[in-house]
Simulated assay, not measured.
Amino acid sequence: MILGYARISTDDQNLDLQRDALLKAGCERVFEDTASGSKTERTGLAALLASLRKGDTVVIWRLDRLGRSLKDLIGLVERLDATGVGLRSVQENIDTVSIGGRLVFHLFGALAEFERNLIRERTQAGLSAARARGRKGGRKTRLDPAKREVALRLYRERKHTIAEICRMMGVGRSTLYNYITEADSRVLESA
């Protein structure tokens, strides 16, 4: 079967252009979503994927209508390929059933991996440079040492609830628990 998938991001947009192009491309059924590409839950796409059988072809108007990102698109194409389903894009004239179409997707995948590695390298270089200048990553501490001791004393006195201590000190529960854990570990180390 030849199945189509169309997606628009907002209710203000119209599916007619995509729907017409998919029907012209020979789609027997068109699955549709009105959802941002960044949304992971797309019921039309889920229904399409659930109905696919080996030998089917999914037709889309443009590649950006299918995947939320290049990585997501490549993952979907690999999933389709693993189940014996082809993908055809009307605007880009790409067909993964052909050798040339598969080559294009492998190139996309290689470029995406290259980009991820570049970003990782830049991030590591930036962190190393910051460390060399004496900068330390992470959030700044919420309480100075004196206020931290007050919070710990209030906790150990057991006269106030955790919520009350957090409210008095202006910190969240996880911050207070982190201070408690840190203080307890210092006590164990010194023992």
Rank of each mutant, 00 (worst) to 15 (best):
M1Q: 08
M1F: 03
I2D: 01
I2K: 00
D11F: 09
D11H: 13
D12K: 15
Q13W: 11
Q18H: 05
K24Q: 15
G26S: 10
C27E: 07
E28C: 03
R29E: 12
E32N: 06
E32Y: 00
D33P: 07
T34P: 00
A35L: 02
G37D: 01
K39A: 01
K39V: 00
E41Q: 05
A46V: 07
L48M: 13
L49Y: 04
A50D: 15
A50S: 15
L52S: 12
L52Q: 08
L52G: 11
L52F: 09
L52N: 09
R53K: 15
V59F: 02
I60R: 05
R62F: 02
L63G: 03
L63Q: 03
D64V: 02
R65C: 03
R68K: 05
L70I: 13
K71W: 00
K71I: 08
K71V: 03
K71F: 03
L73C: 12
L73V: 10
G75C: 03
L76N: 07
L80V: 10
L80D: 06
D81V: 02
A82W: 00
G84R: 05
G84S: 07
G86M: 11
L87P: 10
L87N: 01
Q91A: 15
E92N: 03
E92Q: 14
N93M: 09
N93E: 14
N93A: 15
I94N: 06
D95C: 07
T96S: 12
T96P: 06
S98C: 10
G101S: 11
R102V: 07
R102T: 08
L103G: 09
V104K: 12
H106R: 13
L107G: 09
L107Q: 13
L107P: 00
G109P: 02
L111H: 03
L111G: 05
E113I: 04
F114E: 14
F114R: 08
E115F: 01
I119S: 05
I119K: 07
R120C: 07
E121R: 12
R122V: 09
T123M: 14
Q124I: 13
Q124S: 08
A125H: 04
G126D: 03
G126C: 01
G126R: 04
L127C: 02
L127Y: 02
L127F: 04
S128C: 03
A129C: 00
R131S: 06
G134R: 04
R135Q: 07
R135K: 10
G137H: 02
R139S: 11
R139A: 13
R139D: 08
R142D: 11
L143T: 11
P145C: 06
A151Y: 11
L152W: 08
R158H: 12
R158Y: 00
H160A: 07
I162W: 00
A163E: 14
C166H: 08
M168R: 15
M169I: 14
G170N: 10
V171K: 08
S174L: 06
T175N: 12
T175P: 07
Y177V: 10
Y179H: 13
Y179W: 11
I180L: 12
A183N: 07
R186V: 10
V187H: 05
L188D: 07
E189A: 09
E189W: 01
S190V: 10
